[in-house]
Amino acid sequence: MDIKTLAQKIDSDKKLVSGHRTCAGCAIPIIVRTILSATDNFLVAANSTGCMEVTTTIYPYTSWNIPWIHNAFENVAATLSGIEGAFKALRKKGKIDKEIKFVAFGGDGGLYDIGLQSLSGALERGHNCLYVCYNNEAYQNTGGQRSSGTSKGSITTTTPKGKKEARKDLMRIVLAHHIDYAAQAAVHNILDLYQKAEKAFNAKGPSFLNVLSPCTLNWGFMPNSTIKISKLAADTCFWPLYEVEKGKYKLNYNPFKKLPLEEFFKLQKRFSYLLKPENKNFLNEIQNEVDDNWEELLKKSG
């Protein structure tokens, strides 16, 4: 599929419609609509507490044209597993004959942190569900506090001097559950995201997508720069695009010219302090870690 056809397909997909109240420049609706358009089956969606939940369902309005549920913050995976269980039971009884796909959306707070156990339990039990992390690298809905998905160096409202710890590698944790498909994607490359969502929906058993979702408000960049920021995350190898199918790693994007982190950092308030001369050592430390992770990924993907 070429990008134009895909754009038309996403545009004609009305599962999540306009009128929601995400910030101008928010990546979440683009990510979600791309993923939702990647299956022609009926879909049921579940959402953990977070930006996406509060902006799309302010009562008595809803932006959802598919069945959707929000239960609480840490339990989107468990909630969806119950729905999938109900589906299986009804299908066994012959009360449902159609195929239905199940997708859970959570932020990094909802899946890296408070909902990790629920996600792990659901992955281990093997429900036929897709779990998507729209990863905006902090608790952006509550004002931008650090999560375990926040990158080293990032200023958040609870790490005012910059986070000292490296972010958790959720992909490796998810893959330790022996699932058939997991991938990392980002909002600037919707063709890649769409193809990954298609594979994830068609995978046997659970699947997982970790999608970088730049946050204009708390990363501190202009609303018209979302796509540019996301692309720089990939071009600096800060956020590599890759997938793991049945244990086999595949790199989906290898930048023609790998850019230094400064190019990505200088456009965001959360990182720009790192460009000051007195922070040179810390910046180098972060650059070295990004380089090491990239090298390791190159090796894994052969």
Binding site: A77, A78, G82, I83, A86, A89, S118, G121, E124
Partner: peptide
Amino acid sequence: VDTEFICAESEHSALSATVGASAAGVRA
């Protein structure tokens, strides 16, 4: 019984899954 028996990894998830199933229109 015809039940889908979900061995949850905590009571929090057990009730959360039950909520999901009940919202899906079945006895849970």
